[in-house]
């Protein structure tokens, strides 16, 4: 499969302009014969929405904008990020997987960072699940930004059978590294490298660029293969479409070489977790 990651800078609170941005990059990816295009977190709305969350929420089953996106997904699978108004007045930070005109899955962000510069818990409802789902390109697991930094979340997708883990992100950069780029970009790569290797899955991370209220989104989108090797990486700061060919057979060969999946014992871990969660009261 040919995957593309659209490292773009959405316009804050402007659904129409952002739809046009999506359309433009979808066309670009389609011309390069990509099978899938992955946008960053909240790509249809921008990130620092605050009270605008309630103004840009979309119900994917009803919103005309989603109808248009679904139409575009007849030729190429699309993963956008958006504010989902799941029920009237209930807003989530969500990612959708669109394929052949259908919505195959919606993931609602579980871990909403609410500390320091982040205020998501103030404005969004909390998602409850990580559930891989079948696609034309194997089983896919979706995560949004901070979800990815929970190794438990990655583990659940692994146990659930994900072969391709897709992360959409709006991660601001902080600090400097010697090689150039933001120091915090290393954190995401570290998880990408570790999770791809230990789950023997592809990991594709699509992060945004641009500025909102002075926050610089760090870009640096990447793809790791099931042996933990870097397949492609975008630079910091610049808008870019990165494209890579993934051979899903590599999942099989990695799992033959390293039987992490075969030897895993989720039922034992579940029992241990239950003991920890239910026995250890604060």
């Amino acid at each position: 499969m040919r995957i593309s990651l659209a490292q773009v800078a959405p316009r804050l609170g402007d659904l129409q302009k952002n739809f046009e941005l999506h359309h433009y990059f979808i066309e670009k990816a389609r011309k390069k014969k990509a099978d899938l295009i992955v946008f960053p977190e909240l790509s249809l709305t921008g990130y620092t929405l605050m009270d605008m969350v309630q103004e840009v929420g979309l119900n994917p089953a009803k919103a005309p904008l989603f109808k248009r996106l679904r139409a575009l997904s007849r030729d190429i699978d699309i993963v956008p990020g958006f504010v989902e108004e799941k029920e009237p007045g209930l807003f989530y930070n969500s990612a959708a997987y669109l394929s052949k005109g259908q919505i195959l899955h919606i993931h609602r962000k579980v871990f909403l960072p609410t500390y320091g510069m982040f205020e998501e818990g103030k404005f969004f409802g909390q998602g409850k699940n990580f559930r891989p789902f079948p696609t034309p390109f194997g089983k896919v697991g979706l995560m949004i930004c901070r979800d990815f930094l929970s190794f438990g979340a990655g583990y659940i997708l692994f146990v659930g059978g994900a072969e391709v883990i897709i992360v959409i992100s709006a991660a601001p950069g902080r600090g400097f590294s010697d090689e150039g780029g933001f120091a915090t970009s290393r954190m995401w790569e570290l998880m990408g490298e570790a999770l791809s290797f230990f789950s023997s899955s592809f990991v594709a991370y699509s992060n945004r660029v641009g500025f909102e209220d002075g926050k610089a989104f760090a870009g640096g989108s990447f793809i790791y293969n099931p042996l933990g090797n870097l397949v492609a990486k975008a630079p910091a700061v610049d808008e870019q479409l990165i494209i890579a060919d993934l051979d899903l057979e590599e999942v099989r060969s990695a799992r033959k070489k390293w039987p992490f999946k075969r030897d895993d014992r989720p039922e034992l871990l579940l029992q241990a977790l239950q003991r920890i969660v239910y026995d250890n009261e604060d």
């Binding site: 316009r11 804050l12 609170g13 620092t48 929405l49 009270d51 605008m52 500025f211 209220d213």
Partner: peptide, 10 residues
């Protein structure tokens, strides 16, 4: 509790 970003709709 009227909270909007500086870059509102920009």
């Amino acid at each position: 509790d009227f909270l909007y970003p500086y870059d509102r709709n920009r």
